[in-house]
């Protein structure tokens, strides 16, 4: 077996030492910092991207919350305005009706006064006509006109 020939040990060991040491320094000084740096950089980049995404998400959520608040506020205000308008209109309607009521009442009152006046007048006319008629009747029956006083008494008791 050539593996057990001691004459080959020295050159193999020496070259193993040389090559392995060289490779070790190439790896530890150049290759590994390079790869490690790239991996580290990538990890940082991913972490920072995730942070950025989280920040943007937070912002979005805040914007949505703000929007909802504004919407709720606007809705409440619209409600208040509608209520107020409704109240105003109702009040105006009431006022108008009251005014109309008052006006109509006045008119009615005026009309009633007029009617009363007309009635009084009419009744006065009736009394006078009845007196004249009674006087005429009495004159025609008795041949002499009744005294004015007796006529008036009789009229008063009849009417």
């Amino acid at each position: 077996m050539p593996q057990l020939d001691p004459a080959t040990f020295a050159p193999q060991l020496i070259w193993l030492a040389i090559v392995f040491t060289g490779l070790y320094f190439a790896m530890s000084r150049l290759a590994l910092p390079r790869i490690g740096g790239v991996i580290e950089q990538r990890r940082d980049r991913i972490a920072s991207d995730l942070d950025e995404a989280a920040r943007l998400k937070e912002q979005t959520e805040k914007a949505i919350a703000d929007y909802e608040t504004a919407l709720a506020e606007a809705r409440a205000r619209a409600h208040v305005i509608a209520q107020q308008t409704r109240d105003d209109m109702k009040e105006a309607g009431e006022r108008e009706r009251a005014r109309l009521d008052r006006e109509l009442g006045e008119r009615i009152a005026r009309a009633e006064t007029r009617i009363a006046l007309a009635k009084d007048k009419a009744l006065g006319e009736v009394g006078k006509m009845a007196g004249e008629a009674a006087g005429d009747i009495v004159e025609a029956l008795t041949g002499k006109p009744p005294s004015k006083r007796a006529l008036n008494d009789a009229l008063r008791s009849a009417l």
């Binding site: 020295a10 070259w15 392995f20 190439a26 150049l30 390079r34």
Partner: peptide, 27 residues
Amino acid sequence: DVSFTNSALWMVIAAGVVCAFLFSGSK
């Protein structure tokens, strides 16, 4: 005896392959 043997040659090739593999990759 420090002769450069075929064993040493393949050690050098192995080290070279490792280096080529790790250095030729971009960054």
